[in-house]
């Protein structure tokens, strides 16, 4: 069997530094935790009318942590922990869909640009990638989802499909990045002696490309971009859910709409107690004393830690990548 791996990469693979091990543990831990939470969200019993309030529990708005509510309750008295867990359902599958979109569009485009020389099709693909990369990601997403919402007759009935549409658009916005990275890698690999050796051994071009170039030497680039796309989708979903028009509509929970919900409650209390010109210390005092601190911090930390984990995994894959 031909050795197609770079020796330097093998050496680095054998000796990961403590920093790399930390990145790997954090990244894989995040992916594992999100998967477990998504599974938990599927199996937990929720009362839909109250938006994930535990059946039979008493409604106490902005309550602190207790045995009944481990993280306390939100502005409507719903269990914060249950809503945090259930929110994973809003982005997990659409996020994976976004990763699939970038995978299935970028690999052919990158292969066309990096493995073949020129041609009209390569020129057209290159132009499409340039056009796509000229659209800021959020602009592309907002325009796309606005068009989708305008074209369906009953937007409320298409809520789930809209999330997948968001995923598709986020994936599409990452296609130029991955396609160009793959093209650059394939161009570099074409110059390597192992490709000549493969040809000399009579291997087909398809086998060389798929098995020895893409699968062996490009999987980390692809996986890295999948992590980035998943993180980007989480960011877009929470941002749009926070704004409230194109994300996850209440009462279905999302980390974004949880933050939006508690915001009005905190601001209303602030206005009543301190007036409009309240300062930093008032804000912190209010958040702690009204039991709103966890309702604000829990979704915020969930967003930051999840995105951090996905970026850590992407960083780990980038540093372990063949150079």
């Amino acid at each position: 069997m031909l050795a197609t791996k770079d020796p330097a990469a093998s050496l680095e693979a054998a000796l990961p530094s403590p920093e790399l091990r930390l990145l790997r543990a954090y990244g894989l831990g995040t992916v594992f935790a999100l998967t477990v939470l998504w599974l938990a969200a599927q199996f937990l019993a929720f009362e839909p009318q109250l938006g994930l309030q535990r059946v039979g529990a008493q409604l106490t708005p902005m309550a602190g942590p207790s045995v009944d509510h481990l993280l306390g309750t939100d502005q409507l008295g719903r269990d914060l922990l249950l809503r945090l867990v259930a929110s994973v359902d809003s982005f997990y599958l659409p996020g994976l869909f976004a990763a699939l979109v970038v995978l299935f569009l970028s690999v052919p485009a990158g292969t066309l640009l990096g493995y073949r020389d020129g041609g009209l099709l390569a020129l057209v693909v290159s132009f499409l990638l340039t056009t796509l990369s000229s659209w800021p990601r959020l602009v592309l997403v907002v325009v796309g989802v606005a068009m989708f919402t305008a074209m369906v007759s009953d937007p409320a009935a298409w809520e789930e499909q809209r999330l997948f549409m968001l995923g598709g658009l986020v994936g599409l916005s990452y296609v130029p990045d991955l396609a160009r990275a793959l093209a650059a890698r394939l161009r570099s690999l074409r110059q390597q002696s192992f490709v000549e050796a493969c040809r000399a051994h009579g291997l087909s071009e398809r086998s060389i490309l798929l098995r020895h170039m893409l699968l062996t030497n490009c999987w980390r680039i692809v996986l890295r971009h999948c992590c980035l796309v998943f993180g980007a989708f989480l960011l877009v979903e929470t941002s749009l859910s926070y704004l409230g028009d194109y994300g996850v509509p209440p009462p279905r929970p999302s980390w974004g709409n949880m933050l939006a919900g508690v915001k009005s409650s905190v601001l209303t209390s602030r206005g009543l107690i301190f007036g409009a010109d309240s300062s930093l210390s008032d804000g912190l005092f209010l958040a702690v004393n009204q039991g709103g601190l966890l309702a604000v911090l829990a979704p915020s930390l969930a967003i930051i830690l999840s995105i951090g984990g996905l970026l850590a995994l992407a960083e780990y894959l980038a540093r372990r990548d063949w150079r």
Partner: peptide, 20 residues
């Protein structure tokens, strides 16, 4: 700073720092 989304910072600016 790489981990903090812009909307979250803007959110905290409103609820904690009371940006008018």
């Amino acid at each position: 700073t790489s981990l903090v989304p812009a909307f979250l910072l803007a959110y905290f600016a409103i609820i904690v720092l009371a940006v008018p």
